[in-house]
Design a protein around this nucleic acid. Sequence first.
DNA 1: TTTATCCCCTA
DNA 2: GTAGGGGATAAAT
Length: 939
Amino acid sequence: MNDTARRLVLIDGSSYLYRAFHALPPLSNDDGEPTGALFGVVNMLRATLKEKPDYVAFVVDAPGKTFRDELYPEYKANRPPMPDELRAQVQPMCDIVEALGMPILRVPGVEADDVIGTLAVQAAAEGIGVTISTSDKDFAQLVHARGDGGGIALVNTMSGSRMDSEQAVVEKFGVRPGQIVDYLALMGDTVDNVPGVRKCGPKTAAKWLAEYETLDGVIAHADAIKGKIGDNLREALDRLPLNRTLVTIRTDVDLEQTPTALSLREAHTDTLRALYTRYGFKQALKELDGGAGTVSGTEQARAEQAGMRNTAAGYAKASVTVDGDADPALAAAGVYECVTTHAQLDDWIGRLRAADEFAFDCETDSLDPMRANLVGLSFSTQPGAACYIPLAHDYPGAPAQLDRTVVLDALRPLLSDPGRRKLGQHGKYDLHVLRRHGIEVHGYADDTMLESFVYNATATRHDMDSLARRYLGYETVKYADVAGKGAKAIPFSQVALDDATRYAAEDADVTLRLHRVLAPKLAAVPSLERVYREIEMPLVKVLERIEANGVMIDGDELRRQSADLGKRMLAAQRKATGLAGRSFNLDSPRQLGALLFDELKLPALVKTPKGQPSTNEEALEAIADQHELPRVILEYRGLAKLRSTYTDKLSEMVNPDTGRVHTSYHQAGAATGRLASSDPNLQNIPIRTEDGRRIRTAFVAPPGRRIVACDYSQIELRIMAHLSGDEGLVNAFASGADIHRATAAEVFGKAIGDVDANERRAAKAINFGLMYGMSAFGLARQLGVSRGEAQDYIALYFSRYPGVRDFMERTREQARERGYVETVFGRRLYLEHIHARNQGLRAGAERAAINAPMQGTAADIIKRAMIDVDRWLAGHRDGSGRAPALMILQVHDELVFEAEANFVETLVAEVSGRMAAAAELRVPLVVDCGVGDNWEEAH
DNA sequence: TTTATCCCCTA
DNA sequence: GTAGGGGATAAAT
């Protein structure tokens, strides 16, 4: 947006009042007057005013009928009356808006939506930048961007999202702003009592409009739509035009007000002070009297610099699109060159050599970097300029290409020079590929995926297409566009050079552009910059090495186990068929449910989230005393799970070149900062049951080597002790006692030696429950006690460990005030739904807020340890690169190594020391190590 | 062949 | 109650 453009903010007052009412707890002031909604609205208003708009209006509905009621008498007939606690807050709200000096618009006979729509369109036509502040998605129909700084944007302060371009609307709804009315007409609106096409939700509506463009197009082709939903559409045809009229926001209403008359008057400070005092808004009062708000001035400035904006709820969230000060070159089209001659290659090598930093990207024929063959390389040295060097395109008629060895030899000095800064998007993949083609990359300095992840882990996915859309407002060429998808996909080596260049060079170009946008955002928040620079970037090569190392699997052992499991499954299946009196598919929850609950009439005590009778473990356990079948099913399921997920799968995953299994760690996979593992997932290998644990015996060391497993003892609880500073908990850890036993002793008022097994179990459940933000309900379920009893346990716990209670409350508060929580090392997790009106969503966000600092700090700590241990191990590699020990697995709080037998002692001492020293907390970090010929023995 | 649902494995 | 990956079925296509 142009900085000099005038700005108008139109606030949809009614939608805000409702939103705040449902989103916030039912607060009241000392006199018992309800204040929850008021509080939310006031915070939103203060945030809006801080942005100093030139014009602003607070628009509310006037009583009385409007044109929509004339058209359709049932309009809004489903609306429940306004709750009393909300009604009571309407007048005070208007008083506050008035005192703030903000114009209030209430036009008889015209809905607030239409007032807003009309003013917005008038203002935009005059080149004024309009922001409509609302939680009503219908306004998306008005969104558009304009070069002159005009245009209409939407902010939804519930989600913190901002839509200020056609792309943003498309991203959110899958249709363009011009199609929104058609989209809404098809779906209908239950709240306003406007029925749409039955069973037609957002997905279907967007799909039809993508195909037929407009509502008229859909109506014209109604006969072409098959199935039940086609019948529903044809049934609704008659009323769709009316729907369209009802959901269209009018922009041509006759109004007395003009946008430029909506100036902010001077605030009436004394009235405000009185109102704020009466309703107990301490923060607002403080601000009124010149004090800082909840966010300190410098913090605020930093956040703004970093492209964050304040929203109604007072929490920061990254803005959706390109910043106003972003270099326009960053969104321009690129010029791409396909390099097929030595002269071109020399030219590009010269450019790479002259550049301070460059982006690179590999094209291959496989998603698995441990199997992929290099097909081409792309480079970019400045936004808009990139090349693609094809190396192995082999379709009929493919132009001659440079020799792969020649090209790689020419590039090696650049790629392996630690002094030359390289950047990529998910570069770990490219590091694998290049290493396997004889180039060890050094100087891999920046990764846009990790920049985005550290900057805001939840704002977007971190693949390049999503990043380009969000941070550049740019639509990339999709892989499927050039190579097709599904069964019809061709390998990249068969993509025509023109298409390949368009796609591949763009990857390098966009990576560089993204870095130019993301790096300053990170730099503006020093704590995030440090997490990125000191943890995530150094970790890239460590993970690459672990993945490349792989783990040795005893395939014969797994096959034996598969055969054994298979036999037992068959026996269980026969028994089940006998008990049921007929055969059925034991793997089908549906068939099983029909059998148990319909035929056998067993009670359905547990429901699935969708309301079906559940056949999960809890449900089957509950009826196991009434019939033999449930136990047999449980037995079968346990065996089937082990076989399909583990014993069968793992031996398939052995890499033919290395003879080992190479997992893939996702560094931007979990919002808390944890790693995730897939293909195969080696972070969920069974351990709890005897049969399951046996799978670990197949994770072996080669002859002469041993498996060493080192894990942190109770790391998350220790972090809770550190973060809360609770004296009792800190002392318990300092004493080195069994923490669950110590907790039980405290809570039940016994000597440590007198705690019985049941008390310890309860204490353990409380300890874990706390870290997950549990409720009494959850604990009761876990322990099989009444809710009241569970509540008593929790109360008792908090009375013994008051620091923990305070910590929980502080954490929730921080989440509400800033919109994020932090780890000890400054990593942030944003809680998108912390102010959601939906109670379940909000409660979930609060639980996540409690858990994230602990889970995230633990993740930071083990990552630091991995970097340190890797550095130490690197010093022990001999001339050929062979190390006496390899790091082979990370399982959240555990590191697993494969080591020469005579190096085990050194390894255990060094690794446990380095892991324990990875953070200085108020409590010691304790590391346990085990050694064996396989992973099971090493525990 | 893709998508949603249910179930279950780990820390 | 937190954070993940993934298999099998069944429906939609």
